[in-house]
Design a protein around this nucleic acid. Structure first.
Length: 616
RNA sequence: CGGGCUAUAGCGCAGCCUGGCUAGCGCGCUUGACUGGGGGUCAAGAGGUCAUGGGUUCAAAUCCCGUUAGCCCGACCA
């Protein structure tokens, strides 16, 4: 009862002081407890804590982690996208947080704590009020006769860059990396999968500040390596993958993905050479093969396709598969229209299109532009006779006879031969990579897996330092913008990912490092004085030894307790029952193993400590 | 933000189509007895504004309209 002890202490120490001071004292006590190993444990009697387990699966939970976290009494939903962490679940959150904290500290980052409540103005300075759009929670509040406009921080680049802009003036003050573990707020359009995707979640975010690319790379590598250690220690299988840096800006980033069938992200990887990237970023090893023009080829046939503008509609109408289509998408690259040709079943990749077009921004063209370059409404664009340059994907050149839009309303062309009926002088990689594509780095083929993004590292560069005016002077008194990086880990998402990947049909199987507690002690019959005497002794001995123990002291039948024990998944289970007692033994079993070990009652505490030491 | 589904006891559900007595069932909960090594048995109980506002009707959980909330698919997503 470490925390009960602390509360009692702080209450005594504070006495009847005013509320604010009491609150401050209490907070201080708790945070110092986090760094005091002897206090960081979880001896608990089930009957005195709050672990509301459920036999049945709540209807709203679909994925295993959501179901199990609800059933195991770890979380409860308050509203869509917001969950209460119950004692058991919060314990796991704290275990993960502590691992993150230790590895951040080891990597030389320093912890601070920034406000979740932020003025909207800082998001206007960086242009991210628009970039985030509806995802940014923001609201007005009155103070006297003034009206203030706030945001709830979705991340903290603005706050920390503003802070550093005020305090860094010289190259001598860098490099430095700062981090915090804080609640983040994002107005998710569609929260789902329990705690995997919420509008309020706990995140570790770190920011590096340096004077050179070398310093940035050093900080980046330190964070990258720390992340590997963190996920390793959390017992997660993970994959660092190359990633686009997205709206946050910058030019280099990796995502840390946990392979899981319910993951929302797609990871492309090569089993042979360990190339891995998210689908947005992944290259393909496809080669450009230019088609040779066919002589005497019949002219394409014009077929009417009334009101059928999508590939799906036209393929149904013409009874042909999407692979036979050439999809013609009109983009605007830096404002100038360009047609992008893809095979009908492929998905455009705007990053690749932007690079192929040598543009700084691309976006899908508006209807007016489409009408202008195709002389037809949306849905009937094609390469023949189009009034803008074409960018052609590698796979388009391989289609021997294609269906394309006719650049006329309600009409398509069939029998179109690339290179013959329209020019193909150069082809590009313009689409999302898919399974079975050739690897860009070796001769093997790519695989695709689902993944949960648990961490992300970015080289930001000067995007925020420029817009927030965070500058320093070098040894020659020349002023430069600070070079930044940012590094996030979704702490609560890590917990959910662990549950998502570590369970069986009976419940959770916690890795020891992040388990809410290490040992589950089950006195089978609490009305048997001998069973209770032995159990109490072991409970006390383990607690004194600094082991987190949960004792199921409820007056329930054995089967009931075993089921609950399996469900909440505490790694090591000690059973004290009449049968074992008669033989003078306890039963000790790892949650993930079928083997039951039988140490003598007197040796049980030592035996358990050895078992735990052997696994940590 | 588009499309779909749902809302009845703490959890899972039936009842609704075809309006009609006191709204049921399983689990859980309370009390008692039995029981005691993988969610036990028996008995007696408690617990419901049938999401919400309106309408139709002699009568609405049930039919109609609105609202709210939740879930699923898609779009979006540092």
């Amino acid at each position: 009862m470490a925390f009960r002890g602390i509360y009692r202490f702080s209450n005594m120490a504070v006495g009847l002081r005013v509320f604010g001071n009491a609150a401050k004292m209490r907070r201080f006590s708790i945070s110092s407890a986090l760094h005091e190993p002897r206090l960081f444990r979880f001896p608990m009697r089930w009957s005195q804590t709050f672990i509301p387990t459920m036999k049945e699966v709540p209807a709203e939970a679909e994925v295993p982690s959501h179901q199990l976290m609800l059933r195991a009494g770890m979380i409860r939903q308050l509203m869509a996208g917001a969950y209460t962490w119950l004692p058991l679940g919060y314990r796991a959150v704290r275990k993960v947080s502590e691992i993150v904290r230790q590895e951040m500290d080891r990597a030389g980052a320093v912890e601070l704590f920034m406000p979740a409540l932020q003025p909207i103005e800082i998001f206007e300075r960086t242009g991210r009020r628009d970039a985030f759009g509806n995802v940014l929670f923001n609201f007005e509040a009155r103070r006297g006769d003034r009206k203030l406009h706030f945001a709830l921080g979705p991340t903290h680049e603005e706050v920390i860059t503003d802070l550093m802009a005020r305090h860094i003036s010289s190259y001598r003050q860098m490099p430095i990396t700062l981090y915090q573990i804080q609640t983040k707020f994002r107005n998710e359009e569609r929260p789902r999968f329990g705690v995997l995707r919420t509008s309020e979640f706990l995140m570790k975010d770190a920011y590096s500040f340096g004077t050179s690319l070398e310093q940035l790379n050093t900080a980046y590598d330190a964070m990258y390596n720390a992340y590997c250690r963190i996920f390793e220690r959390c017992g997660l299988k993970y994959l660092p993958v190359e990633a686009e840096s997205g709206p946050i800006g910058g030019d280099a980033s990796h995502e840390f993905m946990v392979p899981a069938s319910n993951g929302e992200d797609f990871v492309i990887h090569c089993p042979a050479c360990s190339y891995a990237a998210n689908q947005e970023r992944a290259e393909t090893g496809r080669k450009s093969i230019l088609p040779t023009p066919v002589t005497n080829a019949p002219a394409p046939a014009l077929v009417p396709t009334p009101d059928a503008g999508s590939i799906e509609q036209v393929s149904k109408l013409l009874k042909s598969s999407p692979q036979a289509f050439i999809k013609t998408l009109i983009y605007k690259a830096d404002g100038k229209p360009v047609a992008v040709l893809l095979r009908g079943d492929h998905t455009a990749n705007e990053g690749k299109i932007r690079r192929a077009a040598k543009a700084t921004s691309v976006e899908l063209a508006d209807e007016a532009t489409i009408l202008q370059v195709t002389t037809a409404p949306v849905g009937f664009a094609g390469p023949i006779g189009i009034l803008c340059p074409c960018l052609i994907d590698h796979d388009v050149a391989n289609i021997s006879s294609a269906i394309v839009g006719a650049n006329a309303k309600d009409a398509h062309l069939t029998g179109v031969i690339p290179g013959t009926h329209f020019p193909v002088t150069e082809t590009f990689d313009l689409r999302n990579a898919e399974a079975e594509d050739p690897c860009p780095r070796c001769s093997d083929t790519l695989r695709m897996v689902h993944g949960i993004e648990v961490g992300h590292v970015f080289k930001l560069g000067t995007k925020y330092s420029v817009s927030m005016d965070a500058r320093y002077v070098d040894a020659q008194e020349v002023s430069h913008p600070i070079i930044m990086g940012c590094y996030g880990i979704g702490v609560t998402r890590v917990v959910a990912s662990i549950v998502e990947t570590c369970h069986d049909e009976n419940g959770i199987i916690w890795p020891l490092s992040v388990a809410p507690c290490s040992v589950m002690l089950i006195p089978l019959n609490v009305t048997d004085p001998e069973v209770m005497k032995v159990s109490e002794r072991i409970y006390q001995e383990l607690t004194d030894a600094g082991v987190d123990v949960l004792m199921d002291d409820r007056d329930q039948r054995p089967g009931f307790k075993f089921k609950d024990a399996d469900l909440i998944g505490i790694p090591l289970r000690i059973t004290i029952g009449g049968k074992g007692l008669a033989e003078g033994i306890a039963e000790v079993k790892w949650r993930g193993s079928a083997e039951t070990m039988k140490p003598a009652i007197a040796d049980t505490t030592a035996f358990v400590r050895e078992q735990l030491a052997g696994r940590s």
